[in-house]
Structures are given as C-alpha cells and as structure tokens.
Simulated scan of single mutants.
Amino acid sequence: MLLALATAFALSQAWRTVAAIMATPLAAEFKLSAHSLGLFAGTFHFAFGAMQLFMGIGIDLHGVRRTVLLAFPIAIAGSLLSALASSYSALIWGQVLIGIGCAPAFLVCTVFIARHFPAGRFAAISGITLGLGGTGMLLTGTPLAWLVQVSSWRLGFVLLALLATLSWLLIWWLVHEPEDDNPAMRQPARETLGQALRGFGALFLIPHTWGIVMLASVSYAAFITLRGLWLGPMLIERLDFSLVQSGHVALVMSLASLLGSPLFGWLDPGAGRRRRWILGFSLLVSILFALIAVTQNLLVGILVPVVIGLLSGFIVLQYADVRSAYSSAITGRAMAMLTMAMFLGVAVMQWLTGAIASLAISQNVEPYIAVLASIAALLAVGALGFALLPKPIDKT
C-alpha cells in the first residue's frame, strides 16, 4: 500500500521540478522574465502548501485513501490544462490545479508510516519513501530535456497526466485502510471541521513550533529552488550547456537526492542528537550555496549541486524531529504543519528569487550570484531560528 501511495508522491516530485527544464522554452514562447518564471515555479508550491491544512484535516476525518483519490484527479486536469495553455495565465492556473491535486501526496505517506510503523523506524521508512518518491525527479532530468528538445514542453505535461492516471488507478486498486485505521469508519462521532481547524491552529501556540517552522520554510525550499527552477538556466547561461546537458546534471542531482533520503534515515542518530545534525547540515548546505554563488567554475557548477542533492536527505530528520516533538494524538496535523511550512517556503523562495534575479539584471549584476547568495542567507537565518528558539521535549 505504501508503495502505491509513493507513486503519487513521485508524480508530485516530477511536476514540482519541471521548471528547471521547461524554463528556457517557456520563456521563449511566452516572453517571460525571470520574475515570471519564478512565479510560475512557485505557484505549484503555494497551492500545495496552502492546502496542507485541509488535506491534514481530510485525512483525519476521512482517511488516507479517500483523500488522495479525490484530490489527485485535480492534478491530472491541471497538467492537461498546462499542455493546452495558450497564455501565461493559463499556465499559472494549471500550476494551481496541479498543486491542489498533489497536496496530499507526501502527507498520506507520512501519516501512513506514523500509523503503521514503530516510532523508532519512522526516520528509516520515511527516508526510503522519500527516495522512492524522488524517482519522479528523474523524469524531469535527461528524459524530459530530451522530450522537450525533440518535440515540445507541452508533451511533457501530457505524459505526466497519463502517468498520474495510472498512479490513481493503482491507489484505487491496492490501498484499502483497515477499519481501525480509517477515521471515516470509526464510532463514536467524528470531529467537526471547526474543531479540527482549532486543533490545527493550537499547534502554533506551542513554543517549539516556531523554530521548526522557520527552518522547514527554507531547508527543502533551497534544494527545490535550485533543482526545480534555477539549475537548468544557470548551467545554460553560465557554462554554455545545452538543454540536454543541463538535464544530465539535473538527473545526477536527482539521483543523489534519492540516495540521500534513505541514507539519512538509516543514519538517524536518535532524538538526543538529531537536532544538532539538522542544524549542522543546514549550515553546511548554506555554505555550499554561497560557494556556487561566487564560483563560476565548471567543476563547482556540476559537483556542488550534486552534493546539495545528496545532503538534501537531511530533511527526513526534520520529519523524525516532528514525530518526536508532538504527541501521537496530533501527529497527522503536526506532519501537515511541517509539510505546509516546507512548500509555502518553496513558493515564497521561488517567487522571491525570481524578483531578485530581475532586480540583479536591471542593476547589471550576474543574476545567479544574487539568487544563490540569497538562498544561502535564508538558510542561515532559518538555522539560526531553529537553534535559538524554544526546543521541544521528546514525546516519543
């Protein structure tokens, strides 16, 4: 069942990273600025993140299966709308629909793991699931670059819609929650929507929530903003790569991220040392972004993104940290809160870096210096908040 759920997560990973390969042809066809490209890439993540609250409540009230089966067709419709888009506004609406439809894709996996596996195995199983889901990013490396180069970007959206339809059918066929695990089938009376909303809001009254949210809003965003938006244009414009050559680097970076998630899940040091690891790797990734910001070198331009892809696996430790930081009664909502912070963070970072790139160009500054340095700074600020704000008491 978890593997079937992971197929939807893999498709959401593919959709959220298409901009890295499609940015150049989209900019050419619709005459888009760097700011417009940032908005295009960020719209998916804004819709995805904004819906986490409702998806978390939906899972609590109606179960994993019903929630994902109702939502995912919206993503398929959005992908088809994008393929047929004749204007920039239609592209944006397509991204909104894809983001809404994909909103429960990873959340259902984390809730399923939290309900069906021991707490001590949460990081390891989540790492494997992140790795499996990350295979979707392989589609938006060399394969998508080749498809776009020999045909068009529109066919890429059509292909993702077809694959998503197969994923929906697989989930419908294989995922069936036991009665005890499906809130929609439980007696006594279910929680009302108002009670659920108040329960979600109460998370933000807990002091240690804010440090978790500060880092969550920039950690995944840094990786996805590079892999999902700026990697292709940076390699093409800085190092004179072709679209397919930049796709090769994106593919290797994605492969590294697939290894990173299960690796960090396996290496999880436990609640006592986990937060120090999270802080340390956040700062290390910040330094690597600063390095590629100021170094326009072929070796650095290829190797450092791959290393960032590998180190992005430390994000699985953030999910394990949340699993330990809140009581089991609110695990689903705590996971939804973390996922919401991560993907709203991606939306803001992609929009912000698009604005920064446009400003840099207007001031005759190399845009990738400004973009990558700003990501490094945001990571450092998030790590500082995580380190200095109140820490949780282990609830494992």
Rank of each mutant, 00 (worst) to 15 (best):
M1P: 07
M1Y: 02
L2A: 07
L2C: 08
F9T: 01
A14N: 12
M22I: 03
P25L: 13
K31F: 02
A34C: 00
S36K: 08
L39C: 07
A41D: 03
G42R: 03
H45W: 05
F48G: 03
F48H: 02
G49Q: 10
A50S: 12
Q52D: 07
F54A: 15
V64P: 13
T67Y: 13
V68T: 11
L69Y: 04
L70Q: 08
I76R: 06
L81Y: 03
L84H: 03
A85H: 14
Y88E: 08
A90T: 11
A90M: 13
W93K: 03
Q95W: 07
Q95G: 08
V96P: 13
V96K: 09
I100R: 05
V108F: 14
F112I: 01
F112M: 08
F117C: 12
P118Y: 09
P118T: 10
A123F: 01
A124D: 03
S126T: 15
S126N: 12
S126C: 12
G127S: 00
G134S: 02
L139Y: 04
G141R: 10
T142H: 06
L144K: 11
A145Y: 04
V148N: 08
V150C: 02
R154Q: 15
G156E: 09
L162E: 13
L163W: 04
L163A: 10
L166P: 00
L166T: 12
W168G: 04
P178H: 03
E179S: 12
N182I: 06
A184I: 03
M185T: 05
E191Y: 05
E191L: 15
E191I: 15
G199L: 06
L205E: 11
V213T: 06
A222Q: 01
F223E: 10
L226G: 12
L229G: 05
L231A: 00
P233V: 07
I236K: 13
E237L: 11
V244N: 03
S246K: 01
V252N: 03
S257E: 02
F264A: 06
G272Q: 14
R275L: 04
F281G: 01
L283A: 06
T295M: 14
G301L: 03
I308T: 04
G309T: 11
L310A: 08
I315P: 01
V316T: 05
L317C: 10
A320G: 09
R323C: 02
R323H: 09
I330N: 01
I330P: 00
T331R: 00
L338N: 09
T339D: 15
V346Q: 14
Q350F: 10
W351H: 14
G354H: 07
S358Q: 15
S358K: 14
A360G: 12
S362Q: 11
Q363S: 05
V365H: 06
S374I: 01
I375Y: 09
A377M: 15
L379K: 06
G382A: 09
F386Q: 00
K391Y: 00
I393W: 06
